[in-house]
Amino acid sequence: MNRTLLRFRLKHSLPGAAFALGGLILFGLLMCGAYQAFGMDRNLAEALPGSEAMLRAMLGERGALMWDLTSFLAMAWRHPIVLAVIAGMAASYGSAFLAREVGDGTADLLFSRPVTRSRLFWNDLAVSSGIMAAVTVLFSLSLWVAASAMGLSPPGVAQFFRAGVLTLAFALALLAVAYLVGSLLSDGRRAMAISAALFIAMYMVDAVGTLWDRVEPLRPLSLFAYFTPLDSLKARPEGTGNAIILFAVAAAAVALSHVVAGRRDL
């Protein structure tokens, strides 16, 4: 690892990441506060018969829904705002390494140093994945702290840890896919737009597939289908299985983008 490069990348990525994390934590606090202040357990339980389909789509849950705090927290975790922040960060970081460097012309400066592309790739990935890990883990932790501090009796910290690991796996899978897109293109904005469009398409497949049986067979193609914090919070084995699948996708996409980045012209 090149320390100067790590410091440089961190310095210029941290403000944005801190802003995103602050937003996520604030969102979690508001959700927990709203749950407590407005008795949302009762309200949502009463509303459940009419809005179960929508809630199931949000949770990525195929089976019958039992409404309680755990389901509410899982809904907060998979809320479109949270997903948009995580996917946006992944698309932005993934497109920055090669596509944006080449498109902006800064690749000529960076890649003409006495360092292999492979090393630059791992450096960049270390910074991006480190930031994604910090954001997802701190967000998960903040939800547990907020729910506990408000006396909501959330699931144990072990379940939160599992959900945090699942969120990290999900974020890394998105990040790796965005890296792959970025490795193939020479324009940062285009790479970011394509990654974002891909993520939206995957989300739609997952959400619609939850509700509509004809689309359901396509759900395994969507990374969102494996992001099931409700499984982790309820300590179901599916949560661990999904985390493994997401980590495997991340590893495969990273390996592929590493090969592409090493072979392409700059």
Partner: peptide
């Protein structure tokens, strides 16, 4: 490079430090 592009948000000192850090 001929088409010289740099990180606009960085200072000259930072850029020289970053690129010189490899030698």
């Amino acid at each position: 490079p001929g088409e010289l592009a740099m990180y606009p948000w960085a200072s000259g000192q930072e850029l020289i430090g970053l690129l010189g850090g490899f030698y």
